[in-house]
Simulated assay, not measured.
Amino acid sequence: MTQPNPAAWADASDPYDVCVGLGYHCETTYQLRRVTGNESAHFFDWLDLDFDAVVETITEDFAHVLRPGQVEPFSDGLCALDRGSDIRFFHDFAPSEGRLLTQGDIDCQLDGVRAKFMALAERWRALAASSAHVLYVHHDAFDECAARGLARLRHTIATAHPGQRFSLLWLRRTPPADAADLAPGIAWGTVAEAPGRWEGDDAQWDEVFSAVPMSPRRTDAAGSAAARPMTEETPV
């Protein structure tokens, strides 16, 4: 097990108020909620999407997500694929019969699902505009990214939300070969796959976050103390 880069957490006097997952899939959401105890919903929770889709969604300010005519059954009807954003929705569209989605199921539910995600997009913007110190977590579940990609992601967030206080945590299955090339404000760590367990390995995630300075005062999207958790998605 490899801890995150200690240099990234050198300034423990400015701990993180909230952790926000950026995919790849449901393991991230489950583990961040378990580790932090904060169940507030964020835009990328419970979604299946790759790195480029995250970057493009933030770049476009969520405008190209779930547009009419762009969403269709995928993986033989096990999920809905948004062609406009390359996001796979496994938990937001419900089949009318059996286990498989049809185009009719998606079309009749699209307005409601889109309204939910537009509300979560607004929550993202409110958090970015607040005083909260945010740790964005990208789980590179298949070790596909490189240091330059994480720099691109950090630049994308910083450009979209100038002045936001945030860092990135890049979690992989194995240590990155180019860790020395990481820009300031980006840490890395490893969490091994847990075969047969979509939730991941609790002990591995615990070890990573034992090194992360978290504020005892959790904040919500407006930067104030969270009074109660808010969940807006269908659990796995």
Rank of each mutant, 00 (worst) to 15 (best):
residue 143 D to Q: 10
residue 39 E to W: 12
residue 17 D to F: 01
residue 182 L to D: 03
residue 100 L to V: 09
residue 222 A to I: 12
residue 186 I to H: 02
residue 148 R to W: 09
residue 225 A to Y: 14
residue 208 V to A: 06
residue 70 Q to Y: 06
residue 133 H to V: 03
residue 35 V to D: 08
residue 90 F to C: 06
residue 33 R to C: 15
residue 153 L to K: 06
residue 77 G to Q: 01
residue 191 V to T: 15
residue 187 A to T: 02
residue 144 E to W: 10
residue 49 L to K: 02
residue 12 A to N: 15
residue 78 L to S: 12
residue 119 A to E: 04
residue 98 G to V: 01
residue 126 A to P: 09
residue 86 D to L: 00
residue 213 P to W: 02
residue 190 T to C: 09
residue 12 A to M: 12
residue 157 I to V: 06
residue 84 G to R: 01
residue 14 D to H: 15
residue 72 E to K: 11
residue 20 V to P: 00
residue 128 A to S: 05
residue 78 L to W: 12
residue 179 A to M: 02
residue 176 P to H: 15
residue 65 V to H: 02
residue 218 R to S: 11
residue 115 A to S: 09
residue 168 L to W: 05
residue 210 S to R: 07
residue 170 W to D: 10
residue 173 R to Y: 09
residue 128 A to I: 00
residue 193 E to W: 10
residue 178 D to K: 06
residue 9 W to M: 10
residue 34 R to A: 13
residue 18 V to E: 11
residue 112 G to N: 08
residue 212 V to T: 06
residue 169 L to N: 06
residue 117 F to D: 02
residue 71 V to I: 06
residue 96 S to L: 15
residue 206 D to G: 04
residue 25 H to Y: 15
residue 7 A to L: 10
residue 88 R to M: 07
residue 119 A to S: 09
residue 130 S to M: 00
residue 137 V to I: 07
residue 1 M to T: 13
residue 74 F to V: 03
residue 236 V to S: 11
residue 131 S to V: 07
residue 1 M to P: 12
residue 230 M to R: 12
residue 192 A to V: 13
residue 171 L to M: 13
residue 207 E to I: 11
residue 31 Q to M: 13
residue 174 T to I: 14
